[in-house]
Design a protein around this nucleic acid. Structure first.
Length: 159
DNA sequence: GCCAACGTTGGC
DNA sequence: GCCAACGTTGGC
């Protein structure tokens, strides 16, 4: 079993949206490294920290809850939809009957939302969370692995 | 294959 | 809104 962190702008798709939807296809990832994590390593049952980026003082950037991988990576249809904000003309051209999608998405299911997020500031201050990728300077991956140790610590902070 | 220019992300 | 960091593009 692996552990992950996925990022979303809270104003775009929040943990509350996931709670409402139950499950969602994690579409819109347009970075090869992030895609490869989803396509090659994410397995059903893996646990996922749900991170909101671009926060403000009211709702700071940080981890807002926990989700679970509920479906293996499959074609991200938003890449083929010219009306979608994540449309990728080149990927659409390369695609043959949906058989060779450039972009994929795994499905994630809501598990729980934290009463209070574990903010980025809190992550940086906690010695037991040192080395967490998300707190690394310049780290912009929207899907990234999390160590079991760090995952357990997050759960310990929000039991 | 190098690298400058550009666009995007995301913390502050 | 600023700007540093990074990925991608495209000229050569």
């Amino acid at each position: 079993m692996k552990y992950w962190l996925i990022k979303s702008e809270g104003s775009c798709y929040s943990i509350a949206d996931l709670q409402k939807d139950g499950t969602t296809a994690w579409t819109g990832v347009r970075n090869y490294q992030a895609r490869n994590f989803m396509r090659d390593e994410m397995k059903v049952g893996d646990l996922v920290l749900f991170y909101h980026s671009n926060g403000d003082t009211e709702a700071p950037a940080g981890i807002y809850g926990i989700a679970k991988v509920s479906g293996l990576a499959h074609a991200d249809m938003t890449a083929f939809d010219p009306k979608d904000e994540h449309y990728d003309a080149r990927a659409a051209e390369l695609n043959v009957d949906g058989k060779a999608p450039v972009w994929v998405c795994a499905d994630v299911a809501f598990m729980r939302a934290f009463d209070k997020p574990v903010s980025l500031a809190e992550i940086k201050l906690d010695p037991k969370l040192s080395g967490m990728l998300v707190a690394k300077r310049g780290q912009r991956l929207s899907v990234m692995p999390v160590s079991e140790k760090h995952f357990r610590r997050i759960k310990e902070l929000r039991p």
